[in-house]
Design a protein around this nucleic acid. Sequence first.
DNA 1: CAGATCTGGTCGGTTGTTGT
DNA 2: ACAACAACCGACCAGATCTG
Length: 217
Amino acid sequence: MNERTKNRLLYALKARGPQTSADLAAHLDVTTVAVRQHLDGLLDEGLVRFEDVRGTVGRPKRVWSLSEHGNSRFPDNHSGLLLDMLDGVRALYGEDGMNQLINRREAAIRAQYDSLMSGVHQLEERLKLLADQRSKEGYMAEVEQQPDGSFLLIENHCSICAAARACQGFCRSELQLFRDALGPECSVVREEHIVSGARRCTYRVRALKRASASGEA
DNA sequence: CAGATCTGGTCGGTTGTTGT
DNA sequence: ACAACAACCGACCAGATCTG
């Protein structure tokens, strides 16, 4: 099997969620037959699974998604070691120690993001920079502009998922980091959360209307 | 119940790549 | 140059459900 196409298929399923072979074919710019042949191979390897979903008319749609094994190809950075160390910090220094650890991490990342954003003022540009940076950190991030003019910052993978599950302080910290990185002229609200069982984390970003000189607020 | 509609599956051919 | 192979595609067939 073509490893590149196979990886593109896995990536598409990870990034875009469960899809039919037709959806995947359109996204990868190949035919549905080609997609099905690759999916059969991936099914044999246990990397994908499918569910037949009955619609209103016609043969049920076969919706493909990543299996547990397929998801495991997107690494959760040394999660076992990380959890051990977090447990150690908590045992030795208590919750206060954990919070200090999170704050220290947050400060280091904030400095990095501040440096990244310096001289960039347009919200969309800042979002793209942030998404690129987050992708480099393993979060498979992207930005989508929504019909209502807001933006959706999407993280398709959580590379610190094990830590985030063990201590939600990491998630609070990241939300605050995004708010700081994008600046005071926008609101950032988390809408989907992997730790809460969602497929991905999403953050709704809206530009705030500036108060005019006449005092309108 | 037959035909229409929508979707997935199979078969055989074409094209491009690689090794000899 | 040629053979072998992988990847892909078009044509056709089959399955599931709705509609008249």
